[in-house]
Design a binder for these strands. Sequence first.
DNA 1: TTTTATATTTATAATAATTATAGTTTAAGT
DNA 2: ACTTAAACTATAATTATTATAAATATAAAA
Lengths: 152, 152
Amino acid sequence: MEHRIDRIKKQLHSQSYKLTPQREATVRVLLEREDDHLSAEDVYLLVKEKAPEIGLATVYRTLELLSELKIVDKINFGDGVSRYDLRKEGAKHFHHHLVCTECGSVEEIEDDLLEDVERIVQNEWGFQVKDHRLTFHGICKQCQTITVNASS
Amino acid sequence: MEHRIDRIKKQLHSQSYKLTPQREATVRVLLEREDDHLSAEDVYLLVKEKAPEIGLATVYRTLELLSELKIVDKINFGDGVSRYDLRKEGAKHFHHHLVCTECGSVEEIEDDLLEDVERIVQNEWGFQVKDHRLTFHGICKQCQTITVNASS
DNA sequence: TTTTATATTTATAATAATTATAGTTTAAGT
DNA sequence: ACTTAAACTATAATTATTATAAATATAAAA
């Protein structure tokens, strides 16, 4: 973890931003909950445990900054809140999501499934792809078995 | 257009909803601006031209209802507003979007580019896909040429 | 046609998420 | 230590969306 914090620190410094204690605490929360998809409010509450004096606005600003630097990605699953998702280190593309409409769980897919599709978009539409957002809505493995059991 | 309104009317009736004048006016706006990606506020302002007495809440409720019936899709391009996008008649899947980070334009792709990917998700992750959201961020054809010209 | 019950609407208030502001603190560079 | 700019806290303001109450419209039953 320290290693990643160090790298993020350097990324900030390279754009002449500082890694303040508040920012560091925020990053630590994101690292600790890497698989989750926290809202700004969620992050705020968790950061408060480490740094009780932090303000909500600071969390918003920090998340915004981390977004700009492509350290986190801001996503929206349609429930009215933005969620913040740490990019895997060195990941070239933003990972995909599987959102279960039954239980609300969110699974991540790291594999880049869009290489072919992006090539098509590039060639046939002349659109120069820089990034993407891909989310599938459906029923997760677990809920499928539950449904089967319940109906038997 | 009348034909499509009629079909939507039937869809509503089949779930025992009514096509009130306000709802019809809203649907007409969506049909007239089929290629746009209007926010609730946008729709409200346009509907007001046809039916000045309509309230904003009614527009929200109507759009919500149309979403449930899968007549429109609610999308979010990350700018804090939900946008509503009419499904093409008979379309099985939700179309994809190309959002230009330079000029903000939004292009639609009707082709289903995700058949293979969905198969993989289904087979390898055991996730039963019901719907998807795919948006590419990048530079549209037009902005690419402008950029080239500007820098020459 | 009148009555009745229900769905829907308007107008407005409330809520929730996010952003802006003012004054204070912190930290880096001289 | 001194100066300057960045960043912070606390709070107010804004924006998008949802909920509520009273009024209206609509379809079905009498």
